[in-house]
Design a protein around this nucleic acid. Structure first.
Lengths: 346, 346
DNA sequence: GTGAAAGCGCTAACAT
DNA sequence: ATGTTAGCGCTTTCAC
């Protein structure tokens, strides 16, 4: 494994000159540079990144904290996000260090070790919680970071997020435009910081459309295991919804399954829209109308934001919120026209 | 940011002693060790990983090469695999460096740079091609590596793989056991090294079951865009198959879609089994019988194999082949009993 | 049991 | 335009 010393010896110059030549500094004769470059190539010299890092106190790497076990509902989100980050890093010659963390939002020892090891120049944290201990830690230790997701209490950091509320509003307006008046809403585990925003989008849209706010139409904090029973409950209401918005794909799939089991056809008897447009949603039968967030771009932006801040710590803190788009498919249509209104026994 | 020097100064001892105390060497007085550990904790000292790496010529990191854009058909495979690797790395205090590569099987500059940078002690390469240039490069430069997937021409390296052939054989035997005699087979892009093995499993099973080998029942090299037309062709045969095995999930979903469009019901009119048991397959309607590979475990094993080899380069080269299991679901049943055979106009 | 000195491979003052 | 020297933070001989 050739080092700079080997190159210097081979070319008959000092290590310093070789360093400057390879770094393309101005104060080396062109001819010398070429000689050095030739020899370096001949010896198949590659710089030792570790030595370089130690010298400049720059790791040339950033970290990404991921959950140790992924929630399968978010498979394609994560992969796209990681792919986006990796692509930006590759383009800028930066390594991407992955760190699997047990309990998101917590401050575990592995996390601390990574932060303090000086192995990375910055970090992207995801799966941010309402108030996230990691954020305070990162601020305190002065490591540049970008969060994917906002927190509620904290501020003064760089983040990127999806405008969940706006996404839900779009879907609601679309359904209202189709003629729906009773629209159900199913939300994810409230530990996710975005659940809050998705719910508020629902409320906002109800308000704007002047629809009555009926709590029985909402199912909050619905995990994977409760999804089907929650869907059942909604469909069993005395006045069931004519449409449902599911804040995650697994919720939408559960609705689909339960509806099918009850002999309801989607969209004729029930319209359905989901947040997060992934393969499962697209491949479902019928294909599901979805609020689509640009997963890969989110990853790219997170990496860019962070790298900008790493290379220039004085640059302003950027908070970027991306508005998702609605992709309409087969799972939504106008509600069935009801007969003349009947009095309903309370 | 406290360094060892700071600790040494604070405790009034030499850097050497501090290093030995913190490394828990035998030649430091217990009492001194404790004093040093206390001070280190008080100063919130964390070792500088870069300096340590430079000194020991050990990066304490391994790499993983992933495709820059993922094929969505393999979302859950990749995430599970990455999660498995990350977990093993975390447990052993090793960083996982992700490198996104444009063209799998190729030797691009980013790959070379990563290999030669001494930033990683070893690497896992995936998506291995029939003959893979990266393998020769890694051998030449003597970097420990583990491949996920076998190659055909090369040998003398550590790999882990799924016994694709055995998986297909299992599915075939199950279908044959149900009474199927005309079983179609759809295979993925032949650039994937596993396509070869999946196909040979199909042939093997035909042979064992003494079924006639009918090339028209096979669709090879089927990409995402050709999936539906390939499925159509199979179902349009004069004597269509009563069952189809799809070597990947997107192929199975295409079959399902085409069958539905033709008014065929699965499994009554057509049984269907897929390789790789992921969420899409499980959530499909009907839920699809699948050959399931332990994705997370594959990642764990790949990391373990590699790390073992990194810590002991003399350890024997391990090749591990994991047999997948068949998960039967709603998409398979015995074929409809046909009436008395009729002559078919050719 | 503790310390002094050397060195991992590189870069950046500061000479000349 | 090139070389000398020092040092990034750590570990490891080798002394004492």
């Amino acid at each position: 494994m050739a080092t700079m010393k080997d190159v210097a010896r081979a070319v008959g110059l000092s290590v310093t000159t070789v360093s400057r030549a390879l770094g393309d500094h101005g104060d080396v004769a062109e001819e010398t540079k070429n000689r050095i470059r030739d020899v370096a190539k001949r010896l198949d010299y590659h710089p030792n990144a570790t030595a370089r890092s130690l010298q400049n106190s720059k790791a040339n790497a950033i970290g990404l904290v991921i959950p140790s076990r992924f929630h399968h509902a978010y498979d394609s989100f994560w992969l796209d996000f990681i792919g986006g980050m990796a692509a930006v890093c590759a383009r800028r010659g930066i390594d991407l260090v992955l760190s699997a963390i047990q309990s998101p939002g917590e401050l575990d020892d592995d996390f601390k070790r990574l932060i303090r090891s000086r192995r990375i120049d910055g970090i992207v944290i995801c799966d941010v919680r309402r108030t996230d201990a990691r954020i305070e830690y990162l601020k305190k230790h002065n490591l540049p970071f970008t969060a994917f997701g906002r927190t509620t209490g904290q501020d003064g950091f760089s983040y990127i997020d999806v405008d969940s509320a706006a996404g839900i509003v779009q879907a609601m307006e679309y359904l209202v435009g189709l003629g729906h008046r009773r629209i159900g809403f199913m939300d994810v585990d409230s530990a996710f910081s975005f659940s809050h925003f998705r719910l508020s989008g629902y409320r906002e849209a109800l308000y704007r459309a002047k629809l009555t706010y009926d709590p029985s139409l909402m199912s909050l904090d619905v995990g994977v295991n409760e999804a089907q029973s929650a869907a059942s409950r909604l469909l069993s209401l005395p006045q069931p919804p004519t449409a449902i918005i599911a804040a995650a794909d697994y919720l939408a799939l559960a609705v689909l399954k339960v509806a099918r089991a009850r002999g309801l056809s989607v969209p004729q008897d029930l319209s359905l829209a989901a947040f997060d447009d992934n393969l499962t949603i697209q491949q479902a039968h019928p294909a599901i109308t979805a609020i689509s967030q640009p997963n890969r771009r989110l990853g790219e932006e997170a990496a860019s934001l962070l790298l900008d801040r790493v290379s220039n710590p004085e640059s302003p803190l950027v908070q970027r919120i991306i508005v998702p788009t609605l992709v309409t498919r087969e799972s939504t249509c106008p509600p069935i026209l009801e007969g003349p209104k009947m009095a309903v026994a309370h």
